[in-house]
Design a protein around this nucleic acid. Structure first.
Lengths: 246, 246
DNA sequence: TCTTGAATCTTTGTATACAGTATCCAGTAT
DNA sequence: ATACTGGATACTGTATACAAAGATTCAAGA
């Protein structure tokens, strides 16, 4: 006899994977600053593991382009305006089209509920003037519509390039005016999704991304090669399994 | 006294990188077949290195999606038709637009010379009925126009997803009729590049990719979930620094 | 004959040891 | 005082050792 539809058991993640996720999250949210060199022994000590899984995580991050090889060590790259432009060029190619694939399903209110919740959270954070929550809600918004994209490779690509510039958003989203623009962008996207209009959704996303790109240029000025670096965010004392608070 | 213009010495690539490139090339051209499990000790023995660099290479390949985790080991994934469709969906989003960026430069005959040479090589291989050379020339064609794309991240993405399906081309390019279609596709692309017409180039590339996707479906039939596997290519006994001939 | 169980063997995950090389610092000579 | 040199130090690249988890095999019992 075979028991039908029995889910595979949860398997504990290997240390290498845990380190990868931890490091990626820390790069993403700016806990690890651009220009900072990532040394294996130091990271290993902070994370309480040996160099081996740290090394594995670092090579994967380098493969992703989230850290770059700096002669010997790895560093979080300080992106020039040209780099940011390149990243947005790729995002503009894939993200609107990914969103288009979602619009067919979001006519259903139940399906789009998480997206609308994230939108509401963004609005709330904006009203409260809470920058950090605003960024988190923003990320949640993307995550919620991305989970509806049927093509996993497309999802992966979108997440990757979004992560490339995520930490830089602190440069622009500190400005309430920019936050307002972003929120309006999300609203327009949501509206198109409610209507189930793929064309409109893709267009709204394109405008949204272009707006984000513009605000970078405005924030940094017109010097074409100046490296961008996000401001250090406040350290929060969490004691989850893996943090970098050494 | 300073000796002027003394070039930095050639530094040998780290073993991990060499293994990565070797493995990737072997997955790409079908020397390593889908479904085949990649075992660390075995690969290490064949390549004459320890497990460490092999492991590094494997995790990077997995990060790229070129190999997948199969419980314990890594395997080259056997792609379903749905997978291939997903990959082509991404390629259709980025590759035509990447090509569009190139068209502005290819009005210059010198600039486009390598592209035209690759086209000629493709035509020659087709006339000779040499399947392997045809695929190589095809890859060279892509490589030559890609080298003109100014956005390195876009280049990386294009190369990645092209490599995802490269080995499957043996399924379709064995057919002379398909080879003819492909060659005509390349010619149309080249023509647009000669004219410096970005729109036409993008369109030609879109058609070209759609054609390739269609030929997969035709080759495999209409069963939507049948896994695809390339036919084993003949083993050639090379003795270059790093091969997998054990 | 089919199932169950144990023992062994394989293979990965992680840690550590070792070697090579770049960087830093101090000392010495000019 | 400055510039060069030599050595100490720190970090990476690679190999290897060790442990744990799974797979496989074979035999015994129902």
């Amino acid at each position: 006899m075979v028991v039908t539809s029995l889910k595979p058991v949860e398997r504990p993640l290997a240390l290498g994977d845990q380190v990868y996720q931890t490091l990626r999250a820390n790069v993403r949210n700016g806990k690890i600053l651009p220009g900072q060199t990532l040394q294996e022994v130091q990271l290993a000590a902070q994370l309480g593991v040996s160099r081996t899984p740290v090394r594995e995580a670092l090579t994967r991050l380098a493969s992703d382009g989230l850290v770059t090889s700096d002669g010997r060590s790895f560093v979080v790259p300080s992106l020039s305006l040209a780099d940011v432009d390149d990243i947005y060029e790729v995002r503009l190619l894939i993200e609107p089209e990914a969103l288009r694939r979602v619009a067919a399903q979001t006519g259903n209110a139940v399906v789009r509920a998480p997206i609308m919740a994230a939108l509401e959270a963004s609005a709330a954070a904006h009203r409260a003037g809470n920058n950090e929550n605003f960024m988190a809600a923003n990320a949640l918004f993307r995550q919620s519509w991305l989970s509806l994209v049927p093509n996993p490779r497309l999802v992966h690509a979108v997440e990757l390039y979004a992560d490339h510039v995520h930490h830089l958003r602190t440069l622009t989203l500190g400005n309430a005016k920019v936050r307002n623009l972003v929120l309006n962008g999300l609203k327009r996207i949501a509206k198109a999704l409610v209507a189930g209009d793929g064309d409109a959704a893709a267009l709204a996303m394109r405008n949204h991304l272009n707006e984000a790109r513009r605000s970078f240029i405005a924030a940094v000025g017109l010097e074409p090669r100046k490296p961008l670096s996000a401001t250090a965010s406040k350290e929060s004392k969490t004691s989850k399994p893996m943090t970098l608070a050494g």
